[in-house]
Amino acid sequence: MTFEVIIFYLLIGLAGLSLFFVFVKFFGLWFRALLSGASVSLARIVGMWLRKVNPAIIVDSRIMLVKAGIPIDPELLETHHLAQGNVRRVSQALVAANKANIPLDFQRAAAIDLAGRDVLEAVKTSVNPKVIDCPDPEKTRASIEAVAKDGIQLRVKARVTVRANIERLVGGATEETIIARVGEGIVTTIGSSETYKVVLENPDLISRRVLEKGLDAGTAFEILSIDIADIDVSENVGAKLQADQAEADKRRFQAQAEQRRAIAEAQEQEMRAQVQENRAKVVLAEAEIPKAIAQAFREGNLGIMDYYRLRNIQADTQMRNTIGGEEPTGSGGTGGTGGGNPQ
Rank of each mutant, 00 (worst) to 15 (best):
A229R: 03
Q314A: 14
K52V: 07
P328Q: 05
I6T: 09
R261L: 15
K99T: 08
I313R: 07
A266M: 06
K213S: 12
D150N: 05
I63K: 10
R181H: 13
A83T: 00
N312C: 04
R208M: 07
N301Q: 09
I263W: 06
A173Q: 09
K149E: 11
G191Q: 11
E184S: 10
I45C: 02
V182R: 08
V160H: 03
E121L: 13
Q92H: 10
D230H: 07
E222F: 01
E258R: 07
G339N: 02
D113R: 04
L50S: 08
E288H: 03
R155H: 08
V66T: 09
N165S: 15
R209W: 05
A100Y: 02
I112N: 03
T125M: 14
M64D: 14
G333W: 06
L169V: 12
A246D: 00
R272A: 15
I57P: 03
V198E: 15
P290L: 02
Q343P: 15
G171S: 01
A292V: 05
M64K: 14
L215C: 05
V53F: 11
S36Q: 12
V170L: 12
E299I: 04
L104S: 09
G185E: 13
I323P: 00
A294Q: 04
R88G: 03
I12E: 15
A100V: 05
I226Q: 10
A97P: 15
H81C: 10
T188W: 02
I289A: 05
R44L: 14
I223G: 05
L310K: 11
E75S: 10
T219F: 11
L76Q: 13
V24W: 15
L34Q: 13
S207H: 08
G183R: 09
Y307A: 02
L205D: 08
I63E: 03
R88S: 13
A122W: 04
G85E: 06
Q267N: 15
S234E: 07
T161A: 00
F253N: 04
G183C: 11
I186S: 00
K130W: 01
Q92K: 11
R141W: 00
Y9G: 11
E270Y: 09
Q267Y: 14
N202G: 00
L77P: 01
A109D: 04
Q153I: 01
G191M: 07
L310I: 15
K25D: 03
F20H: 11
E138F: 03
